[in-house]
Every structure is written in C-alpha cells, then in structure tokens.
Amino acid sequence: RIYPLMRVTLTTSDGASVTVSRQLTKHSGFIEKAITDMAVDDNAVPLSAVAVDVDDATLKLVIEWLTEHRDDALPYPEKTDEERRADDIPAWDQAFVQKWDTKEDQQQTLYAVITAADKLDIKGLLDMTCKTLANKINGKTVEEMREILQLECDFTEEELAEIRKENAWCEN
C-alpha cells in the first residue's frame, strides 16, 4: 500500500537532491525496491535518501514525466510482441520530448533519459523514449539510419553484399 503523501529524497550522481512524493516514485521499480530494502515502516517519515545514478538535469525531466503519469496504471501493462507498436505515443509525451529533443541536441538528452528510465526501472518512460528513437529510424535508408545513430559503416563491400544476400531469402 502506498501512502501518497509520503515523500522520498533522491540524491543524484552530481550531488543534488530532490524530494518527491511516493505517488511518483511508485512507478520506479528501482526506487520502490530501494525503499522496500530499507525495511522501514511505511508510516515512517521522512525516509532516508535514495541515491540514483542519474544526473540532476536528467532526473528533472524524469520527474516532469512522472508527474504527468502519476495516475498511470500499476503494474505497467506489458505488451506482447504481437501488440508492440511505436505509433501510439500520447500527445503529451510527444510534446514533452519535442521540448528538448532538438536537432542540435543530437539525441544526447534522449539517450540520457532512456538510460535513466532503464536504471530507475520506469517501464512507461523506457517504452516511450525507445519508441521515439525507433520512430526516427523507421522507414529510413541505411545512410539515413547511420546519420541518425551517428554510426560509421565498418563493413567491407564484400560483407555488405553478403548481408544483402542473407536478407533476400524470399526473392525470386
């Protein structure tokens, strides 16, 4: 049982600390486990601080997302492989990402939020940010994908020809 008014202090990797309600942290598997591991009485306030391996700027974005999604269903509804789709990102989330996922940023913030969502075990945020990146790659050419992911081709021409052959199993 979660006491909504209960608060938890998060200390970031760069030494800052933020105090948030359990209403938000209940969506983070990592923070909830840390609180459980402390084995404190749920009525005991204040809780000891939970250290998170996320920097202050990224944690602020995570908290902004969690605030909007505080009433989301728990446990997070897992999708089967058949149900997976990337085109169902809610409008609020799309606008939220657009605020900081600029061309100049080159996905650095997006990568930071994906990594934070993974570390903090926030499934909804991880899904949303991964879908955002998948949508950028979706339907693109190899060159465009390399540009987006900022990766250099390290294949030889022969290897590329071999991969094309592998991928053409069903062509007549």
């Binding site: 693109k140 190899v142 994908m145 081709c153 390290d154 991928n167």
Partner: peptide
C-alpha cells in the same frame, strides 16, 4: 527495417 538496419554497422 531490421533488414536495412543490419547493414548499418
């Protein structure tokens, strides 16, 4: 897309 992606790196 995975087919295309496999040639990236």
């Amino acid at each position: 897309d995975l087919d295309v992606l496999s040639s990236v790196s």
